[in-house]
Design a protein around this nucleic acid. Structure first.
Ligand SMILES: [Mn+2]
Ligand SMILES: [Mn+2]
Ligand SMILES: [Zn+2]
Ligand SMILES: [Zn+2]
Lengths: 130, 130
DNA sequence: TTATCAATTGCAACATTGTTGCGTTTAATT
DNA sequence: AATTAAACGCAACAATGTTGCAATTGATAA
């Protein structure tokens, strides 16, 4: 099988995730890295981190895509079954690890992954909007 | 307020939705219309139909965006609180109108919209994969 | 430590998706 | 039929993501 390597760029990307409380887009990561590496490299690092189950991808109703660190203990084969909240005002996306939807599926479907994103106003923006 | 008009292109787009059992991407609609109108016009029609609550937008984990007819009775202010299923094999996206997630939100969030997409294998692909 | 070699990177080129401005056309109303 | 704002086509642009390939580099074994 393919082995994976620790490179300067990969380490830097991980540090950016470590420091951030909210999910990050490819562009946001690129800006924070300040030309440490190429745009394409970041895409490839994100792909690898997803395969390694270190981060997960969040796709939003408005078309934006963000990534966040997985902060469950590392488990083989896990579903990211928590909700994400996307603020319509500040556009920050946060993992709501405690919010897990329950639902009943019809038979004959095999579910591998779920994506549950709520949008509206986050606590910060809700308070400042009074 | 702005009035809305019925144009040939808009009617054609609606017919395409009427005929389809699954959600459609902008590109799929464009191909089915066979150059009846410009690419940009379709984007604008989709925007209008969303505002009129005739269709709704579905954004998928793989980054694709599709649209489907709303088949609830037309109501002012409604949330599309049903699930969508995205097949990893045939890439068809279907509305699961009966599947509605239940969840408990922390306080201080105002939820305006939800997006609940499940991916895996649809009944068709599940059967043919045995 | 040094040689090895596949994993990773940079770069250029490309594809797809969506947006905007503006002059022209057209649906709906008078 | 005249009016007029909505809708349109077209061109140009921006953002996002992908691919091929040669050069670089991290990890491993000699
Ligand atoms: Mn996770
Ligand atoms: Mn609906
Ligand atoms: Zn906010
Ligand atoms: Zn399928």
């Amino acid at each position: 099988m393919k082995t994976t390597r620790n490179t300067a760029a990969k380490t830097a990307v991980l540090e950016v995730f470590e420091k951030s409380k909210t999910a990050l887009s490819h562009t946001e990561i690129h800006k924070q890295l300040n030309d440490l590496c190429d745009r394409v490299t970041i895409y490839r690092i994100l792909d690898r981190l997803i395969n390694e189950d270190v981060i997960h991808k969040i796709s939003n109703l408005d078309g934006t895509v963000k990534y966040a660190k997985c902060n469950h203990s590392h488990q083989r084969v896990h579903i990211h079954n928590h909700a994400h909240f996307s603020c319509e005002n500040c556009h920050e996306i946060t993992c709501l690890e405690t919010v897990k939807p329950s639902y009943i599926m019809p038979h004959n479907y095999k579910v591998n992954e779920i994506n549950f994103t709520l949008s509206g106003l986050c606590p910060n923006c809700l308070n400042s909007n009074i």
